[in-house]
């Protein structure tokens, strides 16, 4: 202690150093941290998404089979580090070239198509009532397991969706029936339009984090 007192620091010196230190620290820390955390701030605070809110066409309802789900790969255009539309256009790089590929399982509830489907073929106009009926019976699910994100596959012998990584099990409606997943498969926001086709957008009934 005695040695420390040889070079005493006054109260105002101490305060001054503290204030300068805090200011310098802030100036030096904020830019690099904010720089690195940009995507986090944009998605979590500002609520922006890298995936453009487009509606992508999946298939015609008449092609969804009875008793088993059918899988599709749908690509959503993404905007990530390559800038907004204007920049993309000026640089000659189209945003549509950068996509995220989603595996999608589509099935009828419990494998049973609704009766209204019988009269609908491709090219037919679908009425509002029919759309409502069809929508209620359709499952449009993301293929990544709700546990750790591996893609699930349909095992016909046991009629279940199985995750190859840790054995998560789902039934034909994507409802969790066994294994480690904490919930059902994530469902897309979808709509059936008057042309009878299913359209989906990159929006789920929960936050799957990575899809």
């Amino acid at each position: 202690m005695a040695e420390l007192q040889k070079d005493p620091i006054t109260r105002s010196d101490f305060l001054g150093l503290g204030v300068i230190g805090a200011v310098m620290g802030t100036i030096l820390t904020i830019p690099p941290v904010a720089f690195v955390l940009t995507p986090l701030i944009k998605t979590e605070v500002e609520g922006e998404s890298d995936v453009l809110r487009t509606w992508e066409r999946v298939d015609h309802v008449a092609n969804i089979p009875e008793g088993e789900p059918v899988s599709y790969v749908i690509e959503f255009p993404i905007r990530q580090t390559y800038g907004d539309d204007r920049i993309q256009e000026e640089s000659g790089v189209s945003q549509q070239e950068f996509t995220v590929r989603n595996g999608v399982w589509v099935s009828w509830r419990d494998g049973q198509p609704p009766e209204v489907l019988g009269g609908i073929g491709e090219g037919d106009e679908v009425s509002r009532d029919q759309i409502e009926e069809l929508t209620q019976h359709l499952n449009v699910m993301n293929s990544t397991c709700a546990h750790l994100g591996c893609p699930v596959r349909w095992v016909a012998e046991v009629e279940e969706l199985l995750c190859p990584c840790h054995g998560g099990l789902y039934d034909i409606n994507g409802e969790h029936i066994g294994g480690p997943p904490p919930r059902d498969l994530y469902r897309y926001t979808f709509e059936i339009r008057e042309d009878g086709f299913i359209y989906i957008t990159h929006e789920f009934d929960g936050d799957p984090y990575i899809v």
């Binding site: 995507p39 998605t43 890298d50 990530q80 950068f98 990575i210």
Partner: peptide, 15 residues
Amino acid sequence: YVVNFLIGGDVIGPA
């Protein structure tokens, strides 16, 4: 936050 920080957005891509 951890996920968004690691993948640099909300989807795995160029970032």
